[in-house]
């Protein structure tokens, strides 16, 4: 075992500086008080839904703490695209020619990790965004994200009342949530815009869950 550990530690040295900074952030203890916990709500816009083949076009993220979002601490990056599906423009409305300053995937990952630190990550259908980021990390020889994740689509289902009269849907899209919580969808399909919708939905959901019997921060995070 000692040998393995040593090997592992040795391997670590090959990781770039930003990865060890990110990793060190996890040595700090996560707060237990809900209002002290830092959440990062994020969304990725991608060229498609295939985790292996498709690429990230942009990442948007917001920092949320004590039921408050600091506008200044929002994160929005656009990535260079080498291959492009024309079909996706229709979904995401991101045009290649658009004059946003662009950065490389590695730069984007570096900035993103630096932004999220050890925060609890929140996303809608989080599994997908997590897999996209992890896949990108893998392409650069980096390990997976270490953060805890919360998925607003699952959390939302927990807020629904238990009634034989309510027909539950299998999946709730971000648009469903925006409609339920009356959130404006002007910026829908931009990464930061979707992250904002997710953040407001998340705050709504938290408010509802807190009133439910047996709610605890520990349960929420596990």
């Amino acid at each position: 075992m000692g040998f393995l550990k040593k090997l592992f530690r040795k391997g670590q040295k090959h990781y770039p500086e930003f990865w060890s900074v990110y990793q060190n952030a996890f040595e700090r203890q996560q707060a237990h008080d809900l209002n002290a916990i830092r959440f990062v709500v994020f969304d990725t816009e991608t060229t498609g839904l295939d985790i292996e083949k498709d690429r990230i076009l942009s990442i948007g993220a917001l920092s949320l703490q004590n039921e408050s979002i600091a506008v200044k601490q929002s994160f929005e990056v656009f990535l260079y695209q080498h291959f492009y599906h024309a079909d996706n423009i229709a979904i995401h409305g991101i045009l290649e020619e658009e004059s946003k300053p662009r950065i490389t995937e590695l730069e984007a990952l570096c900035l993103f990790l630096n932004f999220i630190e050890n925060a609890i990550l929140v996303a809608h259908h989080a599994g997908f965004d997590r897999a996209m980021i992890n896949q990108a990390l893998k392409r650069h020889g980096l390990p997976k994200l270490k953060n805890k994740f919360l998925d607003t689509s699952t959390l939302y289902k927990q807020t629904l009342i238990d009634s034989p009269l309510l027909q539950r849907q299998e999946h709730y899209a971000l648009d469903d949530l925006a409609e339920k919580f009356d959130i404006t969808t002007v910026d829908r399909h931009t990464a930061l815009g979707d992250a904002y919708i997710t953040a407001i939905a998340f705050l709504n959901i938290l408010g509802k869950l807190k009133g439910k019997r047996g709610f605890s921060v520990k349960k929420l995070l596990n």
């Binding site: 039921e67 408050s68 979002i69 506008v71 200044k72 407001i200 705050l203 709504n204 408010g207 807190k210």
Partner: peptide, 11 residues
């Protein structure tokens, strides 16, 4: 100014 705003949610 908008950069410096905090968006706060209150139940």
């Amino acid at each position: 100014l908008s950069q410096e705003v905090h968006i706060i949610y209150k139940i």
